[in-house]
């Protein structure tokens, strides 16, 4: 490689790494804004604004979905296995909505701590499987979504962070 080409290569690599650092710092500064949703532990720690449009995410807690038989009203609890958030919604739920499923809820946090939802979106995990496999897993006593373990781990990590931050 001639010295001139070498110099050019270093100039280009230097420019690209400077741009990468700039983008990296920007993303780091905006990190809380890039998160699509607040986790219940963040809401419990008071990080989410009240009575403004926010998104909250987590798993629908088993055994908490209560439907009103006369209307489309539904109430359920969203959990990250550390803290819980009560959600009330009136409308049609997505097909994938069920207990133990990941959801993102769009709505306003009320002063007394529950969330009035305008929209409920279902998340799903990357573990695709045929129905027979899911059934076999369930019969063997496993839950099809080992996502739950991961969610709990993330929840714990956030819980530790929230405690650390309030400590400062």
């Amino acid at each position: 490689m001639t010295p001139k080409r070498k110099q050019k290569l270093f100039v280009i690599l230097g420019l690209v790494s400077l741009a990468a650092i700039a983008v990296g710092l920007t993303l780091y500064a905006l990190r809380s804004n890039i998160n699509l949703f607040f986790s219940p532990v963040q809401i419990a720690a008071g990080e989410a604004p009240i009575e403004r449009q926010i998104r909250a995410g987590g798993m629908v807690k088993e055994g908490t979905v209560a439907r009103d038989p006369d209307s489309l009203d539904v109430a359920f609890t969203v959990t990250d296995y550390v803290d819980d958030l009560e959600v009330r919604y009136s409308g049609i739920l997505p097909d994938l909505f069920r207990e133990g499923q990941g959801v993102v809820v769009v709505g306003q946090l009320q002063p007394d701590g529950w969330l009035k939802a305008d929209q409920v979106l279902a998340r799903h995990d990357e573990n695709y499987m045929p129905p027979e496999v899911a059934q076999a897993l369930e019969e063997a006593g496993y839950s099809p979504a080992d996502y739950q373990a991961k969610a709990a781990e993330v929840g714990e990590r956030l819980g530790a962070e929230a405690v650390g931050e309030s400590g400062n």
């Binding site: 890039i34 998160n35 699509l36 739920l93 997505p94 097909d95 994938l96 993102v104 929209q119 409920v120 979106l121 279902a122 998340r123 799903h124």
Partner: peptide
């Protein structure tokens, strides 16, 4: 649309 319930979301 069928899975999440929306066709677009400003996620990362």
């Amino acid at each position: 649309v069928p899975t999440w319930g929306t066709w677009w979301m400003w996620d990362a």
